[in-house]
Protein backbone atom coordinates (compact mmCIF):
# COMPACT_ATOMS: atom_id res chain seq x y z
CA UNK A 1 0.00 0.00 0.00
CA UNK A 2 1.36 3.33 -1.04
CA UNK A 3 1.62 6.16 1.43
CA UNK A 4 -0.96 8.92 1.06
CA UNK A 5 1.12 12.02 0.85
CA UNK A 6 -0.05 15.32 2.21
CA UNK A 7 1.56 18.74 2.01
CA UNK A 8 0.90 21.75 4.22
CA UNK A 9 1.51 25.01 2.36
CA UNK A 10 2.23 28.25 4.18
CA UNK A 11 1.40 31.32 2.08
CA UNK A 12 2.94 34.57 3.22
CA UNK A 13 0.32 37.29 3.67
CA UNK A 14 -2.11 36.43 0.84
CA UNK A 15 -3.93 39.74 1.44
CA UNK A 16 -0.85 41.91 1.40
CA UNK A 17 1.49 40.05 -0.90
CA UNK A 18 -0.51 39.18 -3.95
CA UNK A 19 0.06 42.02 -6.34
CA UNK A 20 -0.38 40.50 -9.71
CA UNK A 21 -1.74 37.04 -10.07
CA UNK A 22 0.57 35.51 -7.46
CA UNK A 23 -2.11 33.06 -6.44
CA UNK A 24 -1.66 31.41 -9.85
CA UNK A 25 1.28 29.62 -8.24
CA UNK A 26 -0.85 28.26 -5.42
CA UNK A 27 -3.67 27.21 -7.76
CA UNK A 28 -1.25 25.44 -10.10
CA UNK A 29 0.75 23.75 -7.36
CA UNK A 30 -2.33 22.47 -5.53
CA UNK A 31 -4.16 21.24 -8.64
CA UNK A 32 -1.07 19.42 -9.89
CA UNK A 33 -0.78 17.73 -6.50
CA UNK A 34 -4.49 16.90 -6.39
CA UNK A 35 -4.39 15.34 -9.87
CA UNK A 36 -1.76 12.94 -8.50
CA UNK A 37 -3.62 12.12 -5.33
CA UNK A 38 -1.42 14.26 -3.09
CA UNK A 39 -3.43 16.17 -0.53
CA UNK A 40 -2.65 19.80 0.21
CA UNK A 41 -3.68 22.15 2.99
CA UNK A 42 -3.24 25.90 2.72
CA UNK A 43 -2.46 28.06 5.75
CA UNK A 44 -2.05 31.83 5.37
CA UNK A 45 0.94 33.18 7.28
CA UNK A 46 -0.54 36.48 8.39
CA UNK A 47 -1.11 38.60 11.49
CA UNK A 48 -3.70 36.16 12.87
CA UNK A 49 -1.33 33.15 12.75
CA UNK A 50 0.48 31.79 15.79
CA UNK A 51 4.18 31.50 14.88
CA UNK A 52 4.32 27.89 16.18
CA UNK A 53 2.09 26.79 13.29
CA UNK A 54 4.94 27.54 10.88
CA UNK A 55 6.72 24.47 12.26
CA UNK A 56 4.05 22.24 10.67
CA UNK A 57 4.55 23.63 7.18
CA UNK A 58 6.12 21.60 4.37
CA UNK A 59 6.34 24.38 1.80
CA UNK A 60 6.46 28.15 2.09
CA UNK A 61 5.35 30.49 -0.69
CA UNK A 62 5.65 34.27 -0.95
CA UNK A 63 4.47 36.65 -3.67
CA UNK A 64 4.88 40.33 -4.46
CA UNK A 65 3.70 43.40 -2.65
CA UNK A 66 3.46 47.11 -3.18
CA UNK A 67 5.74 49.28 -1.04
CA UNK A 68 3.13 50.23 1.55
CA UNK A 69 2.12 46.61 2.06
CA UNK A 70 5.77 45.54 2.28
CA UNK A 71 6.16 47.73 5.34
CA UNK A 72 3.07 46.25 6.99
CA UNK A 73 4.37 42.76 6.27
CA UNK A 74 7.77 43.37 7.83
CA UNK A 75 6.21 44.90 10.94
CA UNK A 76 4.23 41.72 11.54
CA UNK A 77 6.87 39.26 10.41
CA UNK A 78 9.63 40.50 12.72
CA UNK A 79 10.48 38.37 15.77
CA UNK A 80 8.90 34.95 16.25
CA UNK A 81 7.57 34.45 12.74
CA UNK A 82 10.85 35.42 11.08
CA UNK A 83 12.72 33.08 13.37
CA UNK A 84 10.32 30.19 12.66
CA UNK A 85 10.66 30.68 8.90
CA UNK A 86 14.45 30.89 9.12
CA UNK A 87 14.58 27.62 11.09
CA UNK A 88 12.37 25.87 8.56
CA UNK A 89 14.52 26.93 5.63
CA UNK A 90 17.69 25.90 7.52
CA UNK A 91 16.18 22.42 7.98
CA UNK A 92 15.65 22.16 4.24
CA UNK A 93 11.95 22.93 3.89
CA UNK A 94 11.32 23.89 0.27
CA UNK A 95 10.20 27.45 -0.38
CA UNK A 96 9.42 29.63 -3.37
CA UNK A 97 9.63 33.41 -3.20
CA UNK A 98 8.70 35.33 -6.35
CA UNK A 99 8.54 38.97 -7.35
CA UNK A 100 9.28 41.27 -4.38
CA UNK A 101 9.45 38.66 -1.65
CA UNK A 102 13.08 37.53 -2.21
CA UNK A 103 14.10 41.09 -1.30
CA UNK A 104 12.53 40.59 2.11
CA UNK A 105 14.38 37.29 2.55
CA UNK A 106 17.74 38.94 1.90
CA UNK A 107 19.86 41.11 4.20
CA UNK A 108 18.13 44.36 3.39
CA UNK A 109 16.24 46.36 0.78
CA UNK A 110 16.85 50.04 0.17
CA UNK A 111 13.73 51.56 -1.43
CA UNK A 112 13.86 54.63 -3.67
CA UNK A 113 12.40 56.72 -0.89
CA UNK A 114 12.33 56.08 2.82
CA UNK A 115 14.35 53.94 5.16
CA UNK A 116 16.28 50.75 4.51
CA UNK A 117 14.12 47.70 5.23
CA UNK A 118 15.93 44.93 7.10
CA UNK A 119 15.19 41.49 5.69
CA UNK A 120 15.25 38.02 7.22
CA UNK A 121 18.79 37.33 6.05
CA UNK A 122 17.95 33.88 4.68
CA UNK A 123 19.45 34.63 1.28
CA UNK A 124 22.91 36.20 1.09
CA UNK A 125 21.65 39.04 -1.11
CA UNK A 126 21.16 42.78 -0.85
CA UNK A 127 18.70 44.83 -2.89
CA UNK A 128 18.87 48.50 -3.74
CA UNK A 129 16.48 50.72 -5.66
CA UNK A 130 18.69 52.99 -7.79
CA UNK A 131 16.30 55.95 -7.54
CA UNK A 132 12.77 56.92 -8.47
CA UNK A 133 13.86 58.29 -11.86
CA UNK A 134 15.70 55.13 -12.86
CA UNK A 135 13.72 52.86 -15.18
CA UNK A 136 12.16 49.74 -13.72
CA UNK A 137 13.17 46.33 -15.03
CA UNK A 138 10.00 45.40 -16.89
CA UNK A 139 9.31 42.83 -19.53
CA UNK A 140 9.09 39.23 -20.62
CA UNK A 141 11.98 37.12 -19.45
CA UNK A 142 13.55 33.74 -20.18
CA UNK A 143 16.20 31.97 -18.16
CA UNK A 144 17.97 28.67 -17.85
CA UNK A 145 18.00 27.06 -14.43
CA UNK A 146 21.57 26.40 -13.31
CA UNK A 147 20.90 25.39 -9.75
CA UNK A 148 19.70 21.90 -10.40
CA UNK A 149 18.48 19.93 -13.33
CA UNK A 150 14.73 20.33 -13.37
CA UNK A 151 13.94 18.14 -16.29
CA UNK A 152 15.49 15.73 -18.65
CA UNK A 153 16.06 17.88 -21.66
CA UNK A 154 17.29 21.43 -22.18
CA UNK A 155 13.96 23.22 -22.88
CA UNK A 156 12.54 21.78 -19.64
CA UNK A 157 15.31 23.59 -17.85
CA UNK A 158 14.22 26.90 -19.30
CA UNK A 159 11.96 29.17 -17.32
CA UNK A 160 9.72 31.81 -18.84
CA UNK A 161 7.76 34.65 -17.28
CA UNK A 162 7.48 38.36 -16.65
CA UNK A 163 9.54 40.63 -14.41
CA UNK A 164 8.65 44.07 -13.06
CA UNK A 165 10.93 45.40 -10.35
CA UNK A 166 12.49 48.71 -9.42
CA UNK A 167 15.09 47.24 -7.06
CA UNK A 168 18.36 45.66 -8.20
CA UNK A 169 19.59 42.62 -6.32
CA UNK A 170 23.22 41.68 -5.80
CA UNK A 171 24.41 38.24 -4.75
CA UNK A 172 26.71 37.94 -1.74
CA UNK A 173 29.78 35.68 -1.68
CA UNK A 174 27.95 32.58 -0.50
CA UNK A 175 24.84 33.04 -2.65
CA UNK A 176 24.09 30.78 -5.61
CA UNK A 177 21.98 32.06 -8.48
CA UNK A 178 18.83 30.18 -9.46
CA UNK A 179 19.15 30.73 -13.21
CA UNK A 180 21.12 32.38 -15.97
CA UNK A 181 19.34 35.18 -17.85
CA UNK A 182 18.67 34.52 -21.53
CA UNK A 183 16.17 37.35 -22.15
CA UNK A 184 15.39 40.15 -19.71
CA UNK A 185 17.15 41.86 -16.82
CA UNK A 186 17.39 39.33 -13.99
CA UNK A 187 18.74 40.33 -10.60
CA UNK A 188 20.37 43.59 -11.59
CA UNK A 189 20.49 43.89 -15.36
CA UNK A 190 24.27 43.46 -15.35
CA UNK A 191 25.61 40.11 -14.20
CA UNK A 192 23.10 37.85 -16.02
CA UNK A 193 22.08 36.08 -12.83
CA UNK A 194 18.45 35.44 -12.04
CA UNK A 195 17.27 34.81 -8.49
CA UNK A 196 18.97 32.97 -5.70
CA UNK A 197 18.80 29.59 -3.99
CA UNK A 198 19.63 28.51 -0.47
CA UNK A 199 19.17 24.87 0.59
CA UNK A 200 15.72 24.11 -0.86
CA UNK A 201 14.49 27.70 -1.01
CA UNK A 202 14.18 29.45 -4.36
CA UNK A 203 13.91 33.20 -4.80
CA UNK A 204 13.37 34.83 -8.19
CA UNK A 205 12.20 38.07 -9.76
CA UNK A 206 9.70 36.34 -12.04
CA UNK A 207 6.48 37.78 -10.79
CA UNK A 208 2.89 36.72 -10.49
CA UNK A 209 2.06 33.31 -11.96
CA UNK A 210 5.52 31.73 -12.28
CA UNK A 211 4.53 28.07 -11.92
CA UNK A 212 1.68 27.84 -14.49
CA UNK A 213 4.05 28.14 -17.46
CA UNK A 214 6.90 26.37 -15.68
CA UNK A 215 5.26 23.14 -14.57
CA UNK A 216 8.59 21.36 -14.28
CA UNK A 217 9.55 23.75 -11.46
CA UNK A 218 6.23 23.05 -9.74
CA UNK A 219 6.78 19.29 -10.00
CA UNK A 220 10.40 19.62 -8.92
CA UNK A 221 9.31 21.42 -5.75
CA UNK A 222 6.66 18.75 -5.10
CA UNK A 223 9.27 15.98 -5.35
CA UNK A 224 11.62 17.83 -3.01
CA UNK A 225 8.86 18.35 -0.46
CA UNK A 226 8.05 14.62 -0.43
CA UNK A 227 11.76 13.78 -0.12
CA UNK A 228 12.25 16.15 2.81
CA UNK A 229 9.03 15.20 4.59
CA UNK A 230 8.84 11.44 3.99
CA UNK A 231 12.47 10.68 3.23
CA UNK A 232 11.56 8.92 0.02
CA UNK A 233 11.95 9.62 -3.68
CA UNK A 234 8.73 9.82 -5.60
CA UNK A 235 7.95 9.48 -9.27
CA UNK A 236 5.14 11.81 -10.13
CA UNK A 237 2.58 10.51 -12.60
CA UNK A 238 2.94 12.49 -15.83
CA UNK A 239 0.24 15.04 -16.61
CA UNK A 240 -0.81 16.26 -20.02
CA UNK A 241 1.09 19.51 -20.30
CA UNK A 242 0.15 20.06 -23.94
CA UNK A 243 -1.07 23.62 -23.35
CA UNK A 244 1.98 24.45 -21.25
CA UNK A 245 4.33 23.08 -23.87
CA UNK A 246 2.54 25.02 -26.60
CA UNK A 247 2.70 28.21 -24.50
CA UNK A 248 6.43 27.76 -23.90
CA UNK A 249 7.18 26.90 -27.51
CA UNK A 250 5.26 29.93 -28.79
CA UNK A 251 7.01 32.29 -26.40
CA UNK A 252 10.49 30.87 -27.02
CA UNK A 253 9.93 31.36 -30.74
CA UNK A 254 8.67 34.87 -30.22
CA UNK A 255 11.67 35.85 -28.09
CA UNK A 256 14.09 34.12 -30.43
CA UNK A 257 15.30 31.61 -27.85
Amino acid sequence: MKTTYSITIGWLYPDLMSTYGDRGNIITFRKRCAWRGIQTTLIPIDSSLNAEKIGEMDFIFGGGSQDLEQELVMRDLKGKKSEAIRQKIEKGTPALFVCGSPQLMGHYYEPAEGKRIEGLGIFDITSVHPGIDMPRCIGNTVGSVIWDNLGTSEPDNFIVGFENHGGRTYLGKTAKPFARVIRGYGNNGVDKTEGVVYKNAIGCYYHGPFLPKNPSVSDFITRRIIEVKYGEKIDLAPLSDALENAARKTLFERFGV
Binding site: G24, I27, K31, W35, P212, K213, S240, L243, A246, A247
Partner: peptide, 21 residues
Protein backbone atom coordinates in the same frame (compact mmCIF):
# COMPACT_ATOMS: atom_id res chain seq x y z
CA UNK B 1 -2.06 29.41 -24.37
CA UNK B 2 -1.71 31.59 -21.27
CA UNK B 3 -5.47 31.99 -21.40
CA UNK B 4 -6.06 28.29 -22.02
CA UNK B 5 -3.80 27.29 -19.11
CA UNK B 6 -5.72 29.64 -16.80
CA UNK B 7 -8.98 27.98 -17.88
CA UNK B 8 -7.55 24.47 -17.53
CA UNK B 9 -6.87 25.15 -13.84
CA UNK B 10 -10.48 26.26 -13.31
CA UNK B 11 -11.68 22.68 -13.47
CA UNK B 12 -11.53 20.03 -10.79
CA UNK B 13 -10.39 17.31 -13.17
CA UNK B 14 -7.40 17.38 -15.42
CA UNK B 15 -9.34 16.92 -18.65
CA UNK B 16 -9.61 20.47 -19.88
CA UNK B 17 -11.96 19.11 -22.55
CA UNK B 18 -14.09 22.18 -22.54
CA UNK B 19 -11.16 24.47 -23.25
CA UNK B 20 -10.08 24.79 -26.83
CA UNK B 21 -6.94 26.77 -27.67
Amino acid sequence: YDMAIRMKYCFEKEDGERVEA
